[in-house]
Design a protein around this nucleic acid. Structure first.
Length: 261
DNA sequence: ATGGCGCATGGAATGCGA
């Protein structure tokens, strides 16, 4: 089973890159963020033609998340249960026997700002829901998306000046997700030094590899031992008019092949 | 040097992202 996540920064602009990427990579599940379009504008037909079903939650201009899957997503839920939020940042669905949670976490702007408080409240609500409800009900769970947090020092290039995305409260919130029983699948495997998933459009950041690793695929305990590989795919970041984010791809030996005794 | 680029809205200039 192959599960991927990609912040496309406008599904309208990136649709053809997305379709090409699906053709080339054929994931079983792809979590998308920053659709930046309303549900009525979702390119349902094009994605269906590519061989994928979709569950999505969008809005005008900002945010928007979707789960694409080669088999129909079931039991779709929208938002964090119990957390009132106008912003379309979370969608969850079951694909075969795996619960997929796809999130576009708030940016937070700057520590001390109202947007930062919203980010921490959003993260707190997410951890509570995962720990108290989602994980107990769905032991086979994947949390994937644009977390807008670089969890460790190795996940940010040394020239990153700002506090946002790397601040202690954000990193503590990331650890709280891990403590729910999730594992950062990327760090189960050896990776190139300075592996990132986002590079600013400005300053030739991609060329200089001035990036951050802020897109993640976390897996529950039951899935951890099935992980076989996880990597950043920098290929689409090299195209004309790219998203500023690159996809992350996780390969799982799932369902486990069991010997009958 | 706090800009730079790209996207959306709206139809120019501004807000926002990370």
């Amino acid at each position: 089973m192959k599960i991927a996540t990609w912040n496309v920064n406008s599904l309208k602009v990136r649709l053809h890159q997305l379709l090409d990427w699906l053709d080339a990579n054929r994931p079983d599940v792809l979590c998308l963020q920053e659709l930046k379009l309303e549900d009525k504008a979702f390119p349902e037909a094009e994605i269906r033609t590519a061989g994928y079903y979709a569950a999505y939650s969008g809005q005008k201009t900002y945010n928007g998340v979707a789960i694409l899957a080669s088999s129909p997503p079931e039991d779709v839920t929208y938002g964090i249960p119990g957390f009132s939020d106008e912003q379309k940042r979370l969608i969850a669905a079951t694909v075969t026997d795996v619960r997929i949670v796809c999130g576009y976490f708030p940016n937070g702007q700057a520590p001390g700002s109202g947007k930062f408080a919203y980010k921490l409240a959003w993260l707190d609500a997410l951890a509570r829901w995962l720990g108290m409800e989602a994980l107990p009900i769905h032991p086979n769970l994947v949390l994937a998306g644009d977390f807008n947090i670089a969890p460790e020092a190795a996940d940010a290039h040394s020239g990153w000046k700002g506090e946002i995305l790397v601040s202690p409260p954000e990193r503590a919130a990331f650890r709280a997700l891990i403590e729910c029983g999730l594992t950062d699948s990327f760090r189960l495997f050896g990776q190139p030094e300075q592996s990132f998933s986002w590079w600013d459009y400005r300053m030739g950041a991609f060329r200089r590899n001035f990036g951050l690793r802020i897109d993640h695929i976390l897996v529950s305990q039951a899935l951890r031992d099935a992980c076989r590989a996880c990597a950043v795919d920098k290929t689409p970041r090299k195209l004309e008019r790219p998203s500023d984010h690159a996809p992350i791809v996780l390969e799982l030996d799932w369902p486990h092949k069991r010997l009958k005794i």
